[in-house]
Nucleic acid binder design. Structure first.
Lengths: 212, 212
DNA sequence: AAATTTACTTAACACTGTTAATTACTTTTG
DNA sequence: CAAAAGTAATTAACAGTGTTAAGTAAATTT
């Protein structure tokens, strides 16, 4: 059935071509500005063709959401070789912050948009490979930290959640422009981006105190 | 000029009537679902009338954003009388989390929407009373904690930012549905809402270790 | 060669925020 | 008092959005 396979190939090609176009628009002009019609225009098909390959816009948002998580994971990959667990934890935090700064739109669909996550919660049962991989790496690092004397008597999962939410708080409030305003209003010497860096250092300092 | 005053009164009335309608819609159906046309229908005026009282939709979003901050402040008000500074800090954190849980849409416009904050950054110079008041209360509590032996040698503003971002991280990832998924995937015994409570306890525990 | 399936398009619906032009009414002025 | 000016609201329209139903043209199967 060579012909059927070729057809199947074509279908997959167009599906990924749509996503490719969506991704380009989305990275260049942001999520809000990426419409079905613009994606269609970019690949020179009619808007309705998109619906033959993706259920709706959320479906595309979800695909980008997934891409974001796998991109984040590639940023984490080289950190696996950092020997000291606590240093690795610091490196993960920095890489996460850096990811948010350099890919604000990805960060947005991944962590600040309800729809794609609703999609995951509804359609992915109790699995979510992309997200799980990232979280597991963090959790394993926490466990390794415990072997180094940190976080004794603390729940590993809870500690991982806390580390994640803490750093996410910094990144998201930075991206929303709240930290900028605080720095301005409070007349802080410290600049906007360094504010996160310093706040992160402070958090790490809090964590370091758990060492026994 | 009694007539002019009456006219002025009417203008202000309609302006606040618009906001009232916007608020009701927005609390009932969320921010996304609140359109200019729906607001107009609710007050029985034509959609374009709105534009005579508010510059655009962002202007209304900004007004709701402000209302949110003053609402949050009223939640904090009774906590001023908590004597122990560290207990007060805990109470502030809990009240903040509670606010986010009970007013997800307010929380959304206040901290998870870019436009209203852009509005603040552009039009409010280096002042922002509503936000400043809330932040100042947190900062003063940090200072009081320092008098109790916590956060020694730590910058008060940086510590306040860290406390804020930490708790915001929990609330926003909860509201987006990320924490729910983590709890599911990782098969945590702990339930969704309790996950925040426990994570918050863990954070407080980290802070408590700074006491000298 | 006819029937069926496939891939895609056109047209349309029901919305969105926003602006220009227009009406109805009130106030001020000659 | 009547004409001019100003005000508050409207209608109509623009340019866009996501999405669906119906239709078309080509390829494949019968």
């Amino acid at each position: 059935m060579g012909i059927k396979e070729r057809k199947q190939k074509h279908k997959e090609d167009l599906r990924s071509k749509i996503l490719e176009a969506a991704k380009e628009l989305f990275v260049k002009e942001g999520f809000e500005a990426t419409s079905i019609r613009k994606i269609a225009a970019k690949i020179e098909f009619s808007p309705t063709t998109i619906y033959l390959y993706y259920k709706d816009k959320n479906d595309i948002a979800y695909a980008l959401h997934q891409e974001g998580f796998s991109l984040l994971r590639t940023q984490f990959l080289p950190l696996m070789h950092v020997e000291s667990a606590f240093e690795r934890l610091k490196a993960i935090g920095k890489a996460y912050i850096d990811f948010g700064f350099k890919n604000p739109d990805y960060y947005f669909v991944m962590f600040m948009l309800k729809d794609p996550m609703d999609f995951v919660n509804q359609n992915c049962g109790d699995e979510w490979e992309e997200g799980e991989r990232v979280f597991d790496f963090l959790e394993q690092t926490i466990v390794d930290c415990q072997a180094e004397g940190y976080f004794k008597d603390m729940d590993k999962e809870l500690m991982a959640v806390n580390a994640w939410t803490s750093v996410h708080g910094m990144v998201s409030l930075y991206l929303m422009g709240h930290l900028k305003k605080v720095a301005e209003v409070k007349n802080l010497q410290i600049e906007n981006e360094n504010l996160i860096e310093e706040s992160f250092k402070l958090y790490i300092d809090l964590l370091a105190r758990t060492k026994q």
